[in-house]
Design a protein around this nucleic acid. Structure first.
Lengths: 182, 182
DNA sequence: GTCTATACATCGATAGAC
DNA sequence: GTCTATCGATGTATAGAC
């Protein structure tokens, strides 16, 4: 996993994977059909386990109560994770970067991360009865934060396009959930 | 260019690049220091020339007049380009996918695409006097559309998370620029 | 400037011993 | 099950002729 996250799929050699894992190449090939099979298994595991830190879709308590406070907390948590967890950024780079040649590899992210997140957020926003189209509102919230993190952290835009996470989050909450409507 | 877009950086061999270009490898190495140098030059060119199709920051006429109609047109143009221009998607995959190992490669996108786009949109939205924080509004608009395109086209989420582009755009305009405020 | 030919390393994957 | 040893192919980069 650390080899693929550090060097990408094509630039990762099975020799280095074996050395990092402390086994021989033949041992790896006895467990996985080929390099692509190992890669898919690793990405699947990452999508299932790594993302529970920012948002566990089974944890319904994360999405209840005052919408402004709830969204603010959720958005700030996303920023904090992207800033700290470098593996998170590498996983996103890898998922997007290889999604052309490994379409089946994008699926774990879509199914295990994006889909449950959007669904839970849509349900929550629908309950607030503030939006004509709650799914579009959910996607807008998620998109604004994902693109913010992508630009600042993943694409190293922090220096060129500085914007404090707190201002982005506060401005987003004011934009989508103006105090007058809530 | 077509080789890097099709196979990514690491999986592209200089042999294939030379064959596709109709020259010998030695000729390429006489023009570029190494593979990374060639790659950087190609990505720079793509960032400068390819993106003028969806939005030319020098074209001020694209951002004027009724905000709802302007944003709607702009957002629909982004969707249309992502759906048709497969090279656009591959360029985004490559930029994000290699942004960890080639930090200098993300810069052409940030400087030539994201920064002028956000700046122009921020200025336009500021003129409308509808937003407390126009830059956050601009980033939210851009982020919502970029993430929508990323999920549907780049990560092949169309089947699993279907949502018509027209509904996303219309809902986004209603959310950010409600008819009552405009 | 552009070519052919090649140096030298490393690749993914497997055969066969233990 | 795990190992060592090795296959054939392919990788980047360059030397030297034209």
């Amino acid at each position: 996993m650390q080899e693929f996250l550090a060097h990408g799929y094509a630039a990762t050699s099975m020799d280095r994977v074996a050395r990092a894992a402390g086994v021989s190449k033949a041992t790896i090939y006895s467990h996985f059909k080929d390099k692509a099979d190992l890669f898919a298994a690793i990405m699947q595991q990452l999508a299932e386990h790594k993302f529970a830190t920012v948002f566990d879709p089974r944890d319904r308590t994360a999405l209840q109560g005052d919408p402004r406070a709830t969204i603010r907390t959720l958005a700030l948590k996303m920023c904090a994770q992207a800033e700290c967890d470098t593996r998170f950024c590498e996983f996103m780079r890898l998922t997007i970067g290889e999604s052309g040649r490994f379409p089946e590899l994008a699926q774990p992210y879509v199914e295990n991360v994006a889909k449950p997140f959007i669904a839970a957020l849509t349900d929550y926003l629908a309950d607030q009865n503030l939006f004509k189209d709650p799914e579009v509102a959910a996607r807008t919230l998620m998109g604004a934060m994902v693109y913010f993190v992508t630009l600042q952290e993943i694409l190293h835009g922090k220096d060129s396009l500085p914007l404090a996470a707190e201002r982005m989050v506060e401005g987003l909450v004011d934009l989508i959930l103006p105090p007058s409507r809530a």
